[in-house]
Design a binder for these strands. Structure first.
Length: 274
DNA sequence: TATACGTGGAG
DNA sequence: TCTCCAAGTAT
């Protein structure tokens, strides 16, 4: 077995993305499959679809200028709308991210962060809402960190009700039990092409390409195992060389350019060599 | 209000 | 190698 050494220039995701989609219009005009292709590997594929829909929205009606309008944009929720409205349009809307929720819970010794938005609206500096919101978020990111918070350098330590045991707030949500999933993946090559399929709506990775798989083994040699986790699902993919009955085939040279999730991408990289 | 979503890095 | 963790939106 001999290993080939090759020099690979890794182009960052953002650079590939911004080169292909330098403007809102270019993103709006792209087919969704291509948007997914450039997003592939990052996860949260619904975000890519929402970003694409948002671009089409902007191309059609322009950028919103208020919190309420931004909330209508696909993929934009309370935090993003509040951040944009306050930072770009000087509107006194809270921008409550995970950092701000943690600052709220500790400052007020609250087990739950559900009151964070009401609190943030109340302490808002209406003269400089964007700067205020960014300061709150930075306080959480740099001082009031999830672990080892730097209380001695905290500008509001003397007001803090949770300072004696900051890591108790907010109470962590109990972790879910893992669900173990085992599937058998078939690699089937005919005339230089590989059997593949696109994940359907309702399946994981909708619209992404993958190799055929099922819960029971195929008739073929197991050549490897790939492990993968999606939230609390621990997935073991056993890779087999097997014959499958399919009508969809992809040329080996095209596979690196298809939108694929990381597990099947790893399978393609590790097992399609021959 | 609780849960699903995908991945990579830290330990 | 394994386990744990992260942040925001949609539903």
């Amino acid at each position: 077995m001999c290993q080939q050494t090759q020099v690979v220039t890794v182009i960052p995701y953002w650079e590939r993305w911004i080169t292909r989609f330098p403007t809102v219009a270019s993103l709006a005009q792209a087919p969704e499959q291509e948007v997914l292709q450039y997003w592939a590997g990052l996860g949260y594929y619904q975000r890519a679809r929402n970003l694409h829909r948002a671009a089409m929205w902007f191309a059609k009606v322009g950028f919103p200028t208020s919190y309420a309008e931004w909330l209508q944009v696909p993929g934009v929720g309370d935090y993003t709308a509040g951040a944009i409205a306050s930072i770009c349009f000087n509107q006194p809307t809270p921008a409550v991210d995970g950092n701000v929720r943690r600052v709220y819970a500790r400052l007020n010794a609250q087990a739950s962060a559900s009151g964070a938005r009401t609190w943030a609206a109340g302490v808002m500096d209406a003269q400089c809402p964007g700067t205020w919101n960014q300061a709150l978020m930075e306080l959480g990111a740099r001082i009031c960190k999830p672990r080892n918070p730097d209380c001695k350098n905290c500008p509001v330590e003397k007001f803090c009700s949770g300072k004696s045991s900051p890591e108790k707030y907010p109470t962590p949500t109990p972790q879910r039990a893992s669900i173990l999933i085992e599937r058998y993946v078939a690699l089937c090559r005919r005339e230089g092409k590989w059997a593949m399929r696109q994940a359907q709506p309702g399946e994981w990775g909708e619209g992404l390409w993958e190799f055929p798989s099922k819960e029971s083994p195929w008739d073929g040699e197991v050549v490897g195992v790939v492990r993968h986790t999606i939230t609390h699902h621990r997935i073991t993919l056993k890779v087999q060389m097997a014959d499958v009955d399919t009508r969809v085939w992809q040329a080996a040279l095209d596979i690196p350019h298809l939108p694929m999730g990381s597990a099947h991408r790893r399978i393609a990289q590790n097992f399609l060599g021959g």
